[in-house]
Amino acid sequence: MLTIKNLHANVNGKEILKGIDLVVKPGEVHAIMGPNGSGKSTLASVLTGNPAFEITEGDISFYGKNLLDLLPEDRAREGVFLSFQYPVEIPGVSMVNFMRTAINEQRKYKGLEPMSASDFLKMMREKKEYVELDNKLANRSVNEGFSGGEKKRNEIFQMAMLEPRLSILDETDSGLDIDALRIVATGVNKLKSSENSTIVITHYQRLLDYIVPDFVHVLYKGRIVKSAGKELAYELEEKGYDWIKKELGE
């Protein structure tokens, strides 16, 4: 479904991604780990089309479509979803209005009629259960005044609403206590199917106890330098990244 070939990207003229290759198939969970500044979040931003990043080389194909040709909103409508490391607070835009607009724009893209108000509210109610999101939060402005944990739960709630084919979780575990982590991870697992795929970007193996990856990749200095099964995460947790650096002869 997703094929990344030789991807190079700059931010502010500085090359961050220096040739990424990655293939993700339906139903797979890929973990991307790596030290600070290795390019993990840049990869997430580039996949979703953040205009702050410039692609200098390479291709991204998603279900046969060239993702780099698509606007951020069209990528989302094709089924790419990013759970933000730092979800943005948007005072004055209610969660309900935000989600209804998002759902209906996605439906329009697919040639469907807008969803009725009652169907939409029913859907909101159902999907909130996935992450035990408080009713009060759903009635407030987007992320405004939410705690760190509530923001991350809200990201997974949006994921449940939009039913993406590819979910990218960018450090969804950062800033979460154990209970919140469990709730978020359980939500993600409930949404998993043989059709959709997940890329989990994380520093720590801890999240991977809950969301078990099929593959673990180590990103270092803008390249994937090592790929293996889930056991690689434990090895990293134990030995740190120095071990990888040594393997690379640094």
């Binding site: 953040n50 909103e73 989302a76 948007i90 935000f98 893209y109």
Partner: peptide
């Protein structure tokens, strides 16, 4: 905020409106 809204499938024009 604009990018956040667009990343959920909301067009740029609509996101600006919101």
């Amino acid at each position: 905020a604009l990018f956040y809204l667009r990343s959920r499938g909301i067009s740029e024009a609509e996101a600006r409106m919101l």
